[in-house]
């Protein structure tokens, strides 16, 4: 049997870890125990920033890759982090999965990085958690917000003061008032317990981080026999539905918990504000497009492919439901 080293930057708890454990047990079951996974949690093998390189060089056979860390090597895959109008988790994951499997641009990019794309995560839609009451985009003006990537750029154009800070400092910074708000997601607000020090949640349901997937070492993947390659491919595809269901559950139960807790306040963005948010997001989308085009990629066409997939899956989802 083959034992594969899997590197993940996060803890072995929570919804992501459970989904990965599920994937490992499915792989073992479906391959008749020919594929086994050894997890290295919490960056105990390599940190999140270095996972792509670690997979390429064979330090890890597979691992969780966050595209934000490699804006150059995974420039096109960073399409998943753009704040496009797409906050449905299933639609988003399906779209980026199909794009990663089929688009030539991405296939070339992964080939160049020496890795094989297996499947995708999502952070879920972006929310804001704050120390004081925040109900609208007007309210975030001049607030000190920790945010990242294109979301940070957009918040900045909306008048917020974006602060960079290491994740380890965030809890204390929210507590002391150094930060007013943090960009976060329902399940992770719960996991990191930031509601203890910042009891106001603004539900923005804004885009999601989809440049966030599971990749494998090319050699390790190619060493599998045809049957086991199929097992890996099928399990990877099923992973999306499985992860979607458990993430949806944990987001909902986190939200329910916050709603029931009287000390925590959830407010919702108005329709006008949502429109304004999406309008402002276009700036950072265009900036990404510019970078891609300067590297000779037809960004317009690539983005079209992505939008088409999103629209198709939106329709498919309404059919299923």
């Amino acid at each position: 049997s083959t034992v594969l080293r899997f590197a993940d930057y996060g803890p072995n708890r929570g919804v992501r870890a459970e989904a990965m454990e599920w994937m490992a047990s499915e792989l073992e079951k479906r391959s008749d125990a020919e594929i086994k996974i050894d997890f290295y949690w919490g960056g105990s093998l390599v940190g999140g920033r270095d996972t792509l390189t670690a997979i390429e060089s064979g330090v890890a056979d597979a691992g969780t890759v966050v595209g934000f860390f490699t804006p150059q090597q995974l420039q096109a895959y960073n399409i998943g982090d753009l704040p496009v109008e797409n906050s449905d988790m299933w639609v988003g994951m399906r779209a980026i999965h199909d794009l990663s499997k089929n688009s030539e641009t991405l296939q070339e990019e992964f080939e160049k990085s020496g890795v094989v794309y297996l499947t995708n995560f999502t952070s879920g839609p972006v929310q804001l958690i704050c120390r004081s009451e925040v109900n609208s985009l007007e309210d975030i003006k001049n607030l000190k917000i920790r945010a990242s990537g294109p979301y940070a750029d957009t918040l900045e154009t909306l008048g917020a003061e974006v602060i960079s800070m290491s994740q380890a400092d965030v809890y204390q910074a929210l507590d002391s008032g150094l930060l007013d708000c943090n960009q976060n997601y329902y399940y992770s607000i719960d996991a990191y317990r930031q509601y203890e020090v910042a009891p106001y949640i603004l539900e923005m349901d804004w885009g999601q981080n989809l440049s966030f997937g599971i990749f494998a070492n090319k050699f390790s993947y190619n060493s599998l026999n045809e049957h086991n390659k199929n097992v890996v491919n099928e399990t990877s595809e099923d992973f999306i539905d499985h992860f979607y269901k458990s993430l949806k559950n944990s987001n909902e139960s986190a939200k329910r918990k916050f709603q029931e807790d009287e000390s925590i306040n959830i407010s919702y963005l108005s329709e006008e504000d949502k429109a304004l948010l999406n309008e402002s997001s276009k700036l950072s989308i265009n900036e990404w497009k510019g970078r891609l085009e300067s590297n000779g990629v037809d960004a317009e066409h690539f983005l079209e492919e992505y939008y088409t997939l999103i629209d198709n899956y939106k329709i498919e989802k309404t059919k299923v439901e």
Partner: peptide
């Protein structure tokens, strides 16, 4: 050598 040196560099540098 390849993975070992890669891991040494990655983790020492990080």
């Amino acid at each position: 050598l390849k993975p070992a040196l890669q891991l040494i560099e990655t983790n020492a540098y990080a």
